[in-house]
Structures are given as C-alpha cells and as structure tokens.
C-alpha cells in the first residue's frame, strides 16, 4: 500500500477522491460534537462551565503529538527508506502540528487563569509543550531556509528526529514530575476517569479534529506535489531559455 502510494500521480488520484469524504465527515462530526458540548454535556461540579474549554484543549494537545509522530515517521521515511512522498508528508504536517500546539497552549492558558489563578506556570507539562511549539517553529524556519527540497528534507528530518525526544517528555511529564497540570484522565491503564456524559463529546470532538487534521494534511501534500511540479517546470523553462540564448 505504502509502496503503491510512492507514485505521486497515484497519490494525487487517491487523495483527490478521499479528501471531500474526510473533510465532510469531519464537518458533520464537528457539528455533532459541538451540539453535545454545548447542549447535552453537563457543567463540571468543580469547574462549572469552564470545563467546556476541555473539548478544544485536549483534542488540540493530542493532535499536536499525533502530527509530530507523523513527522518523525516521515523523517525515517526520508532518511532510511527514501520514500518519495515522505518529505512531502513531513513538510505538509509541520504547519498543522504547529497550529494545534498553539491552540493547545492558548486554550490551556485561558483555562488556567480561572481555574489556577494564572495564565502560565513553568511546570513540566506546560514547559515541554512550549518547547514542542518552538521545535515546530524551528522546523518551519528550516524548511524556508534551504531552497533545494531534498537537502531541506534531510536537514529537517534530522532536526525532527532529535526533537522527537520531547514527545515522551510531554506525554509522561505529569507522571514524572509534580505538576500543576492534572495527570492523564482518558488514556489510563485503569480506564478513563471522566464521566461518559463528558467523555463521549470529548472523543467525538477528538475524532472530528483528527479528521480535519488528516484532510488538511492530504490537502497540504497535494499542494506540495504541485509546488514541486511547478519548480521542476520553471527550471526546465529556464534551461530552455538558456539553451536558446546560447
């Protein structure tokens, strides 16, 4: 399957068919999720209505890590397997992951002020998430700094794999250190600690955000393939003009 998709033309055809379905399903689930969040889920007994920020904050945090894992896998695809679409996938994933990390930090800060009395605390979870955003921004800057796509992909791959060290730190920071941020309450060995009336809307929002992320990633990969075609044809045109002038 992955080898079949190595052909950009085949990928364009398959992704062109998939994209409207994934985007449409995401929009429907987002509508259902927002309805449940606002009209069917209760306020928290301690946090009151402020708990509704959770339905944005938690999926954004998950997707921040999910897109970093996509980039790390794609980085291996570039350096080890030399898959032709691996660096395309890496480049398309970076701005999406950065945007979800930004949403996570912003909504977390807005949730923290009424609950903890502060927008920011240098605790392990918050700091490692900020480091994640800085790594994303560094990767985006490196893509822009190197013009030749293959050289840029190799440099970004190395940076991505080095930065992957931060992924388990983000995930387990609440277990390894004593943090202001609460520990995991969904993905736990002893099961979720959230009541189903809140867990169901949260999971629906998470699936809706994930599908949105996948749709944006597919779209970004398609655009990147087109950009590379434009680049190749522009170079061909320049070579032809040079030959004519000579």
């Amino acid at each position: 399957m992955i080898r079949e998709l190595a052909n950009p033309t085949r990928f364009m055809s398959l992704s062109g068919t998939l994209l409207p379905w994934v985007g449409g399903l995401s929009a429907i689930l987002m509508g259902v999720g927002l309805y449940l969040v606002w009209f069917a889920s209760p306020a928290d007994y301690q946090q009151g209505e402020t708990v509704r920020i959770m339905y944005l904050h938690v999926p954004a945090a998950w997707l921040s890590l999910f897109f970093y894992m996509i980039m790390a896998t794609s980085a291996l695809g570039t350096l080890v397997w030399r898959h032709p679409l691996a660096d395309v996938s890496q480049k398309a994933a970076a701005p999406i992951g950065a945007a979800f990390t930004l949403i996570c930090l912003f909504t977390g800060s807005l949730w923290g002020k009424p609950m903890w009395g502060t927008y920011w605390q240098w605790d392990a979870r918050l700091t490692s998430m900020l480091v994640m955003l800085l790594i994303y921004l560094g990767i985006l800057a490196l893509w822009r700094a190197i013009e030749e796509p293959n050289r840029a992909a190799r440099a970004v791959s190395i940076l991505t794999l080095v930065g992957a060290v931060n992924v388990p730190i983000v995930k387990f920071s609440v277990d390894w250190w004593n943090t202001l941020h609460q520990p995991a309450s969904v993905f736990r060995i002893d099961g979720p600690t959230i009541h189903p009336s809140m867990l169901v809307p949260l999971l629906i929002m998470a699936v809706a955000f994930s599908l949105l992320g996948v749709a944006l990633h597919l779209s970004g990969m398609r655009t990147e393939i087109l950009r590379r075609r434009v680049r190749t044809l522009t170079i061909l045109e320049a070579e032809r003009l040079d030959a004519q002038a000579a």
Binding site: G48, E49, T50, R52, I53, L56, H57, A60, A99, L102, I103, F106, T107, L110, W111, K113, P114
Partner: peptide, 15 residues
C-alpha cells in the same frame, strides 16, 4: 468565566 470560554472558541475557530 464566559469571557475565557468564548475567547477559547473564537481563537480556535480563527486558527
């Protein structure tokens, strides 16, 4: 608290 909730949703929608 309404301000913090509304601001979160507006910023997320904009991003």
């Amino acid at each position: 608290h309404t301000f913090f909730i509304a601001f979160s949703y507006i910023v997320t929608a904009l991003v």
